[in-house]
Simulated scan of single mutants.
Amino acid sequence: MNVQVITREGEPEYAVLPWAEFQALLKAAGMPSKSPMAEPAAPQPPVAALSQMRSLREGLGLSIEQLARTVGISPSYLELIETAERQPDAAIRRALARALSVSGWSDPS
């Protein structure tokens, strides 16, 4: 058997072996074989689109000035984002999502 042992602080932590040998071990143990593909991820809740930012902000009762101050950008830049005249970078999208309590923003289509 061709096994690679990975240690941490001198103690064995993981054993890595070729897939065929892993399958043989499962078979010998009477367990079903595993697919090499990962299980599909659980469906994620829909992410609010950046175009919904104004309605999200208004739904929270925030003025454009309040949200801009929270995120650290000017109200005029925030207005450009809300009207889709500007696309914010990833850091600003994350800050906006955090301030509006959404999981994140989808990339523009």
Rank of each mutant, 00 (worst) to 15 (best):
I73T: 13
A24K: 02
A29R: 05
Q66D: 14
I92D: 10
E39G: 07
T7E: 14
K27T: 12
T70V: 08
T7K: 04
A90N: 09
A49M: 10
A48W: 01
L26N: 03
T83E: 11
P18K: 05
I92R: 10
L25K: 04
R94D: 15
P12H: 02
S76W: 07
I81D: 14
V102L: 06
L56F: 03
I73Y: 00
W105K: 00
I81K: 00
G30W: 03
E85S: 06
A28K: 01
G30T: 11
A24V: 08
A42E: 15
V16D: 00
G10N: 00
L100H: 04
E58R: 13
N2L: 08
A95R: 14
E58S: 09
G104M: 10
A15L: 14
M37G: 10
E39T: 09
S101A: 13
A84C: 15
G30I: 09
A24P: 04
E11L: 02
V3Y: 03
E85K: 07
P18D: 11
A20S: 12
N2G: 01
A95Q: 10
S51P: 06
L50V: 10
Y14I: 08
G30C: 08
W105A: 13
A99I: 12
L100K: 04
R57I: 15
R93C: 15
M31F: 10
